[in-house]
Nucleic acid binder design. Structure first.
Length: 969
RNA sequence: GCGGGGGUUCCCGAGCGGUCAAAGGGGCUGGACUUAGGAUCCAGUGGCGUAGGCCUACGCGGGUUCGAAUCCCGCCCCCCGCACCA
């Protein structure tokens, strides 16, 4: 019978159907069984999922299935996340006829729709974001089913459903009551076209080249009736300011703000207004107006305003001050200007006065003599202020100074501080003395998808969750100490996250989701509505079953169920939810909660997972706080990241159709440990596939065998069974620690290898017998990984029930036959040794090979020696002294000393069980055919005594468990 | 910068004080089977070796130890996260 992937795919469909029909994964409260509540994050439904997501979900399912075998009543639910802006943005783009979005989504739909005529209709429906969300939610759930996930689907929901909104509203009331919700102002990236905040999803290329918000210090230089605002990222350099730079061809504006007059570029005013409000524009001024005039810096120095083309009116305020000692741009611009007589003449600047402007050294850096900027610029041979390499030069100087620089005496009160320290201190000083303002700028020029300019704007009345509160952090840390995190090395990351977390905006003005109940202009943002939803799974199916209306899900309702507040009667009266229903829901919650395990990807630690713990800690009672978090790394393909642009993404939808679900699961479980990136390599997938097929064919053929014959008599039989049993025994610990890779390698791949060895050693027929022997336990143990094929074999074994519902086999220690393993190892090692000798002698095969089994005398010696080593350690003197007291050893002095010396010197460990000579002879003799097939030539096995008699060379080298060898050519 | 994780044999990767020349794949070389093989199976894959062994190796340089890929110190290099984004 030849098996192929097509057949496996059929088997998969068959069992998915059976599981679903028998509803075996629908979890019910059962107080007689220990419960296990496991969740994996609900997927965001903006499109199809890929195998990266699949890794996390598959691992979740493996855990769920394993826990079931271990006798737990497992709850493994799933829901869908549709909160936030991306889905809304997609819908918006499709509505507006964005061709890129349309073709992308057309492709997605085609992936799922056999009937192509429907595609346009579906695409049309995507103009409503809810349709995008529900369409993909349905498809994703079908994908999950096709991968064999054992999910209780009755509990599913999505995050914009009314009942979910009610739950989130309740949560936000709780946060507010606890004083964890705050309002304040906040800076965001903002689109001037749409007049609204826009983030990564809306900004062109922001996914590849993210836009950050940068803080500039705009320093006030007295000029005429007001101040020029000159911006800098390095306020500490103000002590070395030599002049101001203005772009003579740019436009500038005079404004009034808080009673003071400011000059800044025309572009800057727009940003200034969005950040500072209350601005009155007074007049427009040409850049050249400023050239040659003077301004006074905060230290009282009078500085020239000079022309420079590198000054970008669209960065910060459009004025900068010059600090040529440390800023390569400034240095180059100054040198250029000094040389450019025409330009000086054009602006009527006095060349002498300009020549007098010299860099002022304010920062001392070890090994840098003179002006840092000058050194770098000369080294890089830069002479033009528009040379792009100036960026790099600036970075180099800054880096060096930030780490190693110290302010010198010119920095006044800041002298002696490192640049690192001085930077913030000088800024604070300038701001506090009203000598500067803080303004924000984007890290690069950016535009929204529709082409609108992105700037930084201040949002007032932004809602925050205040994660900075110490009581909250402390309570979280205390609980974290008790939580189990696997892989353990990530635990520290949680503590670090708790430490640096502070106020975090939790609502936005657009996107899908739940409105803040006390300020409905705001929609709760996606990470902020996903911190406690695991609790909602415990009752979501009941809310539907009993037809509870959203209005009934009041604060009292949730207080009663989740927090055990208020009396049943009262709550029932107020909500009109029948008492028995309320009771039932509460029971269900209290049965399943706390969450026993949450499994997800590592990147979630620094936000979602920490929020998840903190919200539980803040709102729920301690007995309902989460217990365990497990994590896995991401997936790449052929050594490269998967991305839409590279076109190398494998979607979940394709797995069951183009590969096979069990193949995928086997690969995911075996190709990498959780804390390693999983590389999807076609070649390796093929190799796993061939083994899966081999496993299945072996199993199917073995099914025909009857185990009740003489199997188990021979050493090799005992060896095979023992190896299998010890693997299963170890497997439990591996599974408990999520070492799926080691588990699969041992229980699947290596057992198959043992099988091959067994087959070579005996025969194919007998190998099938061996497989038949272990098969029932083998498929139970493998069923978490490859459930479909295991169900199929289980059924063919004549079982009525599902393998998914069996119990993990208990292997008693006594069943493991160490003796058999040691004896078989003698065969293996003997062959190895012969091969090594052949290699050393550079010979193909011997004419005759003598295998000499050590005498009983030596076994006696080994046993006593073992005991002596235990007593004395590897101490030659005292051991040999004691041995010589025994008559037997005394008369064989030379041999005893030689053997003991060797063992002591090499600190060799003696075998746990020292086989007797007949056992050793027998196992070798029984394997003689196999040895011959491996070595070639005649194989003769004899006892040491006989060999000595026949004067076979090297006979005396035989040791217990290590036969002597002599080859004849 | 701050925080975290790493550097292992041709490649990917396990190992984290002795059982380690180092699991498992991949690749390569040879063999078997074959009309053929990109299919499958077997063997070899640091060097040396006329007998089952020896030497050199786990980023670089030191150290601790009877013994280190594994522990400690210094250095070099790589990857990831840093917020309103799901």
């Amino acid at each position: 019978m030849s098996i192929n992937l097509g057949m496996i795919r059929e088997i998969e469909k068959k069992w998915q159907k059976k599981w679903s029909e028998a509803r075996i994964f629908e979890s019910r409260v059962d107080v007689n069984k220990p419960k296990f509540f496991l969740t994996v994050p609900y997927p965001y439904t903006s499109g199809p999922l890929h195998i990266g997501h699949g890794r996390t979900y598959t691992i979740g399912d493996i855990i769920a299935r394993y826990k079931r075998l271990k006798g737990f009543n497992v709850l493994f639910p799933m829901a869908f996340h549709i909160t936030g802006t991306p889905i809304a943005a997609i819908s918006d783009r499709i509505s507006k006829g964005d061709t890129k979005a349309i073709s992308m989504y057309r492709e997605y739909i085609l992936l799922y729709e056999k009937d192509h005529s429907k595609v346009d209709e579906i695409l049309e429906s995507f103009k409503d974001p809810f349709n995008v969300a529900t369409y993909f939610a349905n498809k994703i759930s079908a994908d999950f089913t096709s991968l064999g996930y054992s999910i209780d689907w009755r509990r599913k929901f999505h995050t914009s459903e009314k009942i979910y909104n009610k739950f989130i509203e309740w949560q936000y009331h709780k946060l507010k009551d606890l004083g964890l919700l705050k309002r304040g102002s906040h800076f965001v990236t903002f689109c001037l076209l749409h007049k609204q905040p826009e983030g990564e999803d809306d900004i062109q290329d922001a996914d590849i080249n993210p836009v950050e918000i940068i803080e500039f210090v705009a320093i006030k230089f007295e000029f005429e009736d007001g101040y020029i605002l000159a911006s800098t990222l390095r306020p500490e350099t103000i002590f070395g300011a030599t002049n101001l730079w203005v772009n003579p061809s740019a436009k500038y504006v005079k404004i009034r703000f808080r009673g003071e007059i400011y000059y800044l570029s025309k572009e800057a005013v727009v940003k200034f207004i969005h950040q500072h409000k209350d601005v009155e524009i007074l007049s427009e001024i040409e850049g050249k107006y400023f050239v040659g005039k003077k301004a006074i810096d905060p230290l009282g120095n009078e500085l020239f305003i000079l022309p420079a083309t590198f000054v970008d009116p669209d960065t910060a305020t459009g004025f900068v001050y010059s600090e040529p000692s440390d800023a390569p741009y400034d240095y180059v611009a100054l040198i250029e200007l000094k040389k450019n007589m025409n330009l000086l003449a054009e602006y009527g600047l006095d060349p002498k006065k300009i020549k007098d402007i010299e860099p002022i050294k304010i920062i001392e850096v070890p090994n840098i003599e003179g002006h840092h900027a000058e050194i770098i610029v000369k080294k890089m041979n830069i002479t033009n202020q528009n040379d792009p390499r100036l960026e790099e030069a600036t970075k180099t100087v800054y880096r060096e100074q930030y780490y190693n620089g110290v302010m010198n005496e010119r920095a006044g009160q800041f002298a002696g501080l490192t640049v690192k320290e001085a930077k913030d201190r000088v800024r604070d000083w300038l701001v506090n003395e009203n000598k500067a303002l803080i303004i924000y700028e984007t890290s690069r020029k950016a535009f929204c998808r529709a082409g609108g300019k992105i700037i930084v704007a201040r949002i007032d009345d932004q809602w925050f969750i205040d994660y900075s509160q110490e009581w909250w952090k402390e309570k979280t840390r205390e609980w974290l100490k008790q939580m189990v995190i696997i892989p353990e090395k990530y635990k520290k990351l949680f503590f670090d996250t708790v430490d640096w977390l502070h106020e975090r905006p939790c609502a936005r003005k657009r996107g899908l989701g739940t409105k803040l109940p006390f300020d409905p202009e705001w929609v709760i943002e996606s990470l902020s509505d996903s911190t406690m939803y695991m609790a909602f799974y415990t009752i979501s199916h009941l809310i539907r079953k009993y037809g509870i209306k959203p209005e009934q899900l009041s604060l009292e309702f949730f207080d009663y169920i989740f927090l055990d507040r208020d009396a049943l009667e009262e709550v029932s009266d107020k909500t009109k939810v029948p008492k028995d229903v309320l009771k039932r829901m509460k029971e269900e919650f209290e049965y399943w909660y706390p969450l026993d395990q949450r499994h997800t990807g590592i990147p979630h630690i620094s936000n979602h997972l920490t929020f998840f713990i903190m919200h539980h800690v803040a709102i729920f009672r301690k007995e309902h706080w989460p217990r365990k978090i497990t994590l896995n790394e991401l997936v790449i393909r052929e050594g490269r990241k998967m991305s839409k642009s590279k076109g190398n993404v494998i979607l979940l939808k394709q797995i069951a159709e183009e590969y096979s679900s069990d193949l995928f699961r086997l690969y995911v479980a075996s190709a990498a440990d959780l804390d390693n990136i999983l590389d999807w390599r076609g070649k390796e997938v093929q190799s796993v596939k061939s083994r899966l097929i081999r496993f299945l064919s072996l199993a199917f053929e073995a099914l025909e065998k009857n185990v009740e014959d003489d199997f188990g008599i021979k050493v090799i039989d005992r060896w095979f069974i023992s190896r299998f049993y010890s693997r299963i025994r170890n497997a439990e610990e591996l599974m408990d620690n999520l070492k799926f890779r080691d588990f699969v390698i041992s229980v699947f791949f290596e057992t198959l290898k043992d099988m091959s060895y067994f087959e070579k050693r005996t025969s194919y027929e007998r190998a099938l017998l061996a497989v038949r022997k272990i098969l029932p336990q083998w498929v139970i143990v493998l069923s978490p990984i490859i459930p479909h094929v295991c169900e199929e074999i289980w059924e063919r074994l004549g079982n009525e029930s599902f393998v998914s519902l069996q119990s993990w086999p208990k292997i008693e220690l006594e069943k493991i036959d160490k003796e058999a393993v040691i004896l078989e190892n003698i065969v293996l090692e003997t062959i190895e040794n012969i091969k090594e000798i052949l290699r050393a002698l550079k010979k193909e095969k011997p004419k005759k090979c003598w295998i000499i089994v050590a005498s009983g005398f030596k076994r006696n010696l080994f046993n006593i020696l073992k005991q002596k080593i235990e007593e004395h350690g590897y101490n030659f003197g005292s051991i040999i002294r004691e041995l010589m007291m025994l008559e037997d050893f005394k008369s064989n002095r030379d041999i005893v000393i030689r053997i003991v010396k060797d063992i002591i010197k090499k600190r060799e460990e003696l075998p746990e069980i020292i086989p007797n000579r007949d056992q050793e002879y027998e196992v070798l003799n029984e394997a003689i055919k196999y040895i011959k097939s491996e070595i070639g030539g005649d194989i003769v096995i004899l006892f040491e005594e006989e060999a000595v008699e026949k004067e076979i060379p090297r006979a005396e080298l035989a040791l217990p468990g290590k036969p002597g060898l002599y080859l004849e050519f």
